[in-house]
Design a protein around this nucleic acid. Structure first.
Lengths: 344, 344
DNA sequence: TTGAAAGCGCTAACAC
DNA sequence: GTGTTAGCGCTTTCAA
């Protein structure tokens, strides 16, 4: 109203300009309005705009814990993409609690958020219902139900391939007995990694063990590292004497490295360790951690783009996108101590 | 409207119940309304509420980069507190760019956000103007201008004390020459740490050097670690032979550790290193990193509480809150190699 | 090319 | 105790 008055036009004209409907607006009128906007330092009230249009200019991100380095890195990428589209990012910790997840989703909806990226332990149950209520959700790092057409978009790295990459790298170095380390809870992504690990080990003809730690709902950096450290005791005592270790993620690998060291084993001389996520800091551990990297920036860009497209066209069929992981070859994975000799 | 119709009451009654004005509402009416709400799965539209009341139920958090572990940890704490108050958290990366910071703040305002926590390199210039426009800002980890009454709330750990803690710990172990390592840009918190370092070193009667790396705007984990690694070369070549090293934060310390190691120096035998932030992962480095911890959870709680109080009462005088850091004594700081002998 | 007016869903002042 | 109603700031037909 103030801008319109100052420019001597109606509020509709101002609104038209603001919303790009200025194709055939008088150049002089446009200039007057623009001057008024600048002079008044006017900024549109987004709440009112949202109320009217249903578009909030915000997207949601639900992560188990934002202090987990891997999710923090994802959040960074997502925020960067969102910022480039002039959108804000609402972040919430879900602690892998499905009920909380659910209520957070409801709440985002009531805030006018129409698009959300979710990292869910168990998969979103009522995706269809959410879609009906106008919420476009994309699941990160979880797969659709095999066989059925996906009910929502899934953007994930190929966890099975990631595990296979680790196994093959170790097998190439000569390891014949490997172990996969994970916390106790079976999230979808962990299950996929474990399956991939088993299959690749089978294909490579090596012995495979899966070791699960305590603490079902571990998602914080310290819990993860702690579990890794605790698991090292089971490694050194294991009858199969695994020499190639694959950790479900980098923080577990870091804990594992510390535990192994305390037990007097050195890496990579006595055991090889491969992590997953390729966090920046893994380049600086001792030894520098060999790890598996996901193309997070591209995944973030795709997720935001999919959300934008499905908001524009809700009929857009859901798809599953699978990204290929890559191995970051550093110092923690090398040849096993004495290949084959004491295991005929 | 739907709820009111179903419950056979007016919308005002529904609104009254929803907003706690139900003190003298008929028990039977209340029950009917509640049943209708449940049956319809009704959720209030927050955009409309915001438009009417000006309260968005969201708070903002502006960090240089959310992928930086220390800010991610802070974000986690802040989100937890906000969630407990049924508020959502909007997070944005500022990349330490004052212009971006400024436009993000404007944008949050237009989204209806009334409270924001800012980590700013240079301090918020126009805090007074923001306050006038209805934005309550709290600065994290930066101090008010000394002498003048603070124009906004500041919540910070005492950086000078943190540096002093590190210096004293090293001095107690016998170190007589120390260096402080930092990236090149002088943020307020870095400046405070450096001043505290210098002063404490002077008090302890030890030699003090401040070494700055390249890369003025380093806030990402990898840049920080990289600078730390690069700085190690200047340490080993330094004429003063500093044996006690204090890094501006943990990621730099981790990079430093890696660089020193490559140069053939071992820690803590040849040099001692102390980091700052006490990130969870520092318990698992080799050697486990001695570091300085801030009470982040308490600081987060205070910031959210201050925001709530100042929104309720804009006249509330601004204050500066200083928290005491504590030393986490681990393995990276010990006695210097040969105390005093080759430096008469 | 511009303007008038309806209405998004809610809250709160006020009337009953 | 409960209901009526104005209006938050905006977008968007529709009319001029």
């Amino acid at each position: 109203v103030d801008v319109a008055r100052r420019a001597g036009v109606s509020i509709a004209t101002v609104s038209n300009l603001l919303n790009g409907r200025d194709a055939r607006m008088g150049a002089e009128t446009r200039a007057r309005v623009e001057r008024a906007i600048a002079a008044l330092g006017y900024q549109p009230n987004r709440a009112a705009r949202l109320l009217r249009t249903g578009r909030a200019g915000m997207i949601g991100l639900l992560v188990p814990s934002i202090s987990n380095g891997s999710y923090a890195a994802l959040a960074h990428e997502v925020e960067a993409v969102a910022q480039a589209h002039d959108h804000r990012l609402i972040v919430s910790n879900t602690y892998r609690d499905p009920a909380l997840e659910r209520s957070l989703l409801d709440d985002l909806l009531s805030h006018g958020v129409r698009g959300v990226i979710v990292i869910s332990a168990s998969g979103l149950q009522d995706a269809a219902e959410l879609a009906e209520r106008g919420l476009v959700a994309v699941e990160y790092d979880s797969r659709a139900w095999p066989g059925e057409p996906p009910v929502m978009d899934h953007v994930s790295v190929d966890h099975a391939a990631a595990a296979a990459l680790a196994v093959e790298h170790l097998a190439t170095q000569g390891h014949r007995s490997m172990a996969f380390l994970s916390p106790a809870g079976r999230t979808l992504s962990r299950a996929a990694k474990i399956a991939g690990f088993r299959k690749a080990a089978h294909n490579a003809g090596v012995r495979a063990t899966v070791l699960e730690g305590q603490g079902a709902s571990a998602f914080g950096d310290s819990e993860l590292a702690e579990i890794g450290e605790a698991l090292s005791a089971r490694i050194v005592a294991h009858p199969d004497r695994p020499t190639g270790l694959v950790a479900v993620n980098d923080m577990m690998a870091i804990g594992l490295l510390a535990g192994l060291r305390k037990a007097g084993w050195s890496c990579p001389e006595d055991v090889s360790v491969i992590g997953m996520d390729a966090l920046p800091l893994t380049a600086y551990t001792l030894p520098a951690l060999t790890s598996i990297r996901s193309p997070q920036a591209e995944m973030a860009a795709l997720m935001v783009e999919r959300i934008a497209r499905r908001i524009a066209d809700p009929a857009l069929p859901a798809e599953e996108f699978l990204f290929s992981p890559s191995l970051v070859d550093r110092a923690s994975a090398a040849r096993p101590p004495m290949p084959e000799r004491d295991h005929p």
